[in-house]
């Protein structure tokens, strides 16, 4: 589904990603862990097409297409979804308006007609219930005045409705208390499917207690320095990142 080869990325003159290699197949959950400043967020931003990053080498193929060639909205319509670390507040645009605009953009992209108004409402209300959210939430402005937990839950709601193929979760656990974390994790788990791949970016192992990854990669200083199964996360929790960063230097 996603194939990253020797990806190098600069911000300004500084090289942040120094040759990333990663293969994600449909149905797999990959976690990328790493200390602050290792390049985790840069990777998620580059994959979703945020401006301000210069790809200096390597390639990213998504379902056989060059992902880096696509505008951010085309990536999204093709099924790449980024759950933001800091979801943006958009006063004046209601959640439901954004959801419909997004869903119709995807449908149009795939040559389908616009979603029927009744079908849309039924779908949205169903998903809202699934995530244990209040329907009134839909009519509020996107993320405006939301608590940290509500913002993250809203990201998962969007994901549940847009049904992406590749979900990138950028520090989804940050700023969440344990109850909010559980709700968000349940939402993500309910979306697990054999057709869908996940890339979870996180600093802490905590999230992985609730969303069990198939693979864990450690990113340090712009490179993946170690890959393994879910048990690697536990090892990291115990030992910290220091021993791996030492390996890079060596």
């Amino acid at each position: 589904m996603l194939s990253i080869k020797d990806l190098t990325v600069n911000v300004g003159d500084k090289q942040i990603l120094k040759g990333i290699n990663l293969e994600i197949k449909a149905g797999e959950i990959h976690a990328i862990m790493g200390p602050n400043g290792s390049g985790k967020s840069t990777l998620s931003h580059v994959l979703s097409g945020k401006a301000g990053y210069e790809v200096t080498g390597g390639s990213v193929m998504y379902q056989g297409k060059d992902l880096l060639d696509m505008a951010p909205e085309i990536r999204a319509r093709e099924g790449v979804f980024l759950a933001f670390q800091y979801p943006v507040e958009i006063p004046g645009v209601s959640n439901i308006y954004l959801l419909k605009a997004a869903l119709n953009a995807i449908r149009k992209h795939h040559g389908l007609s616009e979603v029927d108004a009744m079908d849309f409402l039924t779908l949205v209300k169903h998903k809202v219930k699934l995530l244990e959210m209040d329907e009134k939430f839909l009519y509020r402005a996107v993320n405006e005045g939301f608590s940290g937990g509500e913002k993250k839950r809203n990201e998962i709601l969007q994901m549940a409705i847009l049904e992406p193929k590749l979900c990138i979760l950028d520090e989804t656990d940050s700023g969440l208390d344990i109850d909010a974390l559980k709700v968000v994790a349940e939402g993500v788990n309910s979306l697990r499917s054999e057709n869908r791949g996940f890339l979870m970016i996180t600093h802490y192992q905590r999230l992985l207690d609730y969303i069990k990854p198939d693979y864990v990669h450690v990113l340090a200083n712009g490179k993946i320095v170690k890959s393994g199964g879910a048990e690697l996360a536990l090892e990291l929790e115990e030992k910290g990142y220091g021993w791996l960063e030492g390996q890079v230097a060596a």
Partner: peptide, 28 residues
């Protein structure tokens, strides 16, 4: 620009995103 990118990452093209945000600015 952050808001524009957020909308783009939700499938909305840049021109539509600008229009939505302009409207939203006034609608407040």
């Amino acid at each position: 620009e952050k808001s524009i990118f957020y909308l783009q990452s939700r499938c909305v093209d840049e021109e539509t995103a600008r229009n939505m945000l302009t409207f939203a600015f006034a609608n407040e």
